[in-house]
Amino acid sequence: MDTGLRVVRRTTAPGLVVLSLDGYVDLGTAAVLAGALHDVVTARPAPEVLTVDCAGLVFCTSSGLNEFLEARRAATARGIAFRLAAPRPQTTRLLRAAGSDAVFEILPADDAA
């Protein structure tokens, strides 16, 4: 079954987890994103850094933004740095429109890993 969103988790260095997103996040796929983010944030031992690679995220609604915000809050509470990497123009516009671009550490595509 195609959910519209594929999330690939990889550990690129000790303490660093990258979640690569491919597809779109809307009301119907937000639970997939939420589950993947929750798994990383609550993992034992906790990573030092969680980077969400948005290069393959072709569309994101406020449902996805809410999941990013919730994961950032939970990660920060556990001492995990939370970063977004390589957001496409649509996601960047969403972050700016919501005033969330100032909340997230946003990395260029080259720094995703």
Rank of each mutant, 00 (worst) to 15 (best):
D110F: 07
T29S: 15
A102H: 12
A36R: 00
V58W: 10
R88P: 03
V17W: 01
R78V: 11
C60Q: 08
A74N: 12
T42S: 11
A98M: 07
D111G: 02
A74H: 14
A102W: 03
L57P: 06
G79A: 02
A81G: 14
T12Q: 13
S62V: 00
G35K: 11
G23N: 08
L37Q: 08
A85D: 10
L57G: 03
A43W: 01
L84M: 05
L33C: 02
C60P: 08
A102L: 13
V49G: 00
R9W: 00
P89E: 09
A36T: 07
D110G: 15
F82E: 05
L21M: 10
T12E: 15
L94F: 02
A31L: 12
E48M: 13
A85V: 09
V17T: 15
L50Q: 00
R44S: 14
A71I: 01
T51G: 12
A113Y: 00
V7S: 11
T42F: 11
L95R: 01
V103G: 03
T3L: 15
R83Y: 10
F82I: 00
S62P: 03
V25G: 01
P108N: 05
E70Q: 13
A113T: 07
R88M: 08
V18Q: 07
R96I: 13
M1Y: 10
V40T: 04
V17Y: 03
T92Q: 13
F68T: 01
D26W: 08
V8Q: 14
Q90A: 05
D111F: 08
A74Q: 15
S63F: 14
R88T: 08
T76E: 15
G99T: 04
R44D: 14
G64E: 04
R73H: 13
D101C: 04
